[in-house]
Amino acid sequence: MSYRVKRSEFDDILSKLQEDYKIYAPTRKKDKGTFSDTDLVLYDRVSSLEEIDFNSKTKYSPKEVVFPITQTLFYFNGDEYIEAEDKGEKVLVFLRPCEVNAFKRLDKIFLENGPQEDIYYKRLREKVKFVVMECTEGFDSCFCVSMGTNETEDYSIFIKVSDEEVFCEIKDEKLTEVFADQESTDYTPEFIQENKQQVEVPALEDITTDLFDSEIWKEYSKRCIGCGRCNTVCPTCSCWTMQDISYQDNENIGERRRVWAGCHIDGYTEMAGGHDFRTTYGDRMRFKTLHKIYDFRKRFDIDMCVGCGRCEDVCPQYISFVGAIKKLNQAIKEEKNNG
C-alpha cells in the first residue's frame, strides 16, 4: 500500500512512529567534520523530517545500530558476571538499499557463523525495521550495481522525498495505521540501475594462493598508512576486540566491553608475547580485499562488499577499492596468460 504525504504532515507521522520506535537516519552535524568548518553526516537519532539528510552519503554506515562502536557485554562484581541489560527498544532506520544488504552480511557473521548466535547482536537486530530511502542516482564512488546490492525487498517502508511530498510504500502491516489518514497513491519504489563506477568481481575459481604473493599488493605497502578508516566506515566490517576495565572509583567492579577492530590497524593480529602476522600494509590490503570479494562468498555465497564506496571516500591516501579489484582482475589475467 502506497501513500502520498505532505512534507508538512510527515513530522506528525514521525511523532506517532516515535511512540514505539527510536528513529535513526542520516543527519548532519554542523562543523563536526574532521576538517574545520566541515560537517559530519552520520546516522543518529532524529525526530523530524528536517533533520534527515536525504541527499548525502553518510560518512559512517548504519551498522552502529546493531553493532555499537563500544558495547558493554557484562559487568564484573567480585566473582560474579552480570549480563549487560538490553533496553529492548524498537528501532526504525532510514537507509539505502545497499545498507539493507549490508545488514544481511552482518547477520551472516553474527547469527550464522560459528557454533552459537551472538546474543548481543541478535537482541538489537531483531528490533530493527528498515525504512528504505529511494536511491536512484547514487554517488560518485558507488558501485552497488556491480555488487548486486542496489535493490532490496526487505523493508517496512520505502520512501521517496520530493520538494512538496513524501511518497511511502508500506509493507509492514503494523505500520499502516500511522498512515491511515493519508492519501493513497500508486507509488512504486525504484532502484539505481547504473553507477558511475563499474567493476567485475573475479570468479571464485580464479583466485589462487599464487595471487597472495602478487606484486599488486606490494604497491599498497607503500601507499596504505594503516589508519583503519576503510574499516570503520565500512557497513560490513564486523570485527571487534574485547576490553576489560575496572572502574576507577571501585576496582572490584568493572566491565567487559567490545569495540570495533580493523584489519588495517596495527595490533589486529598481534598475539600475547608479541608474535604478529600481517605486518605489511600490502598484506592487510590483500586480506581485506579478498575477504570482501572472495572468501566471504566462498563461505556464505554472497560477497561481503556492498559497493557503497565509503572506503574510497575516506582514504587519505586515495586508495580505491574498485581500483584494487581491477588490479586483481589484471593479475588474474596475467596469471592465466603465463599459466
Binding site: G114, P115, Q116, C239, W240, A261, T269, M271
Partner: peptide, 11 residues
C-alpha cells in the same frame, strides 16, 4: 589472536 572463540570477532 582471538577475542571470541566462536567465529564472530574476526581476528
Amino acid at each position: 589472536k582471538m577475542s571470541c572463540g566462536i567465529g564472530k570477532c574476526g581476528h
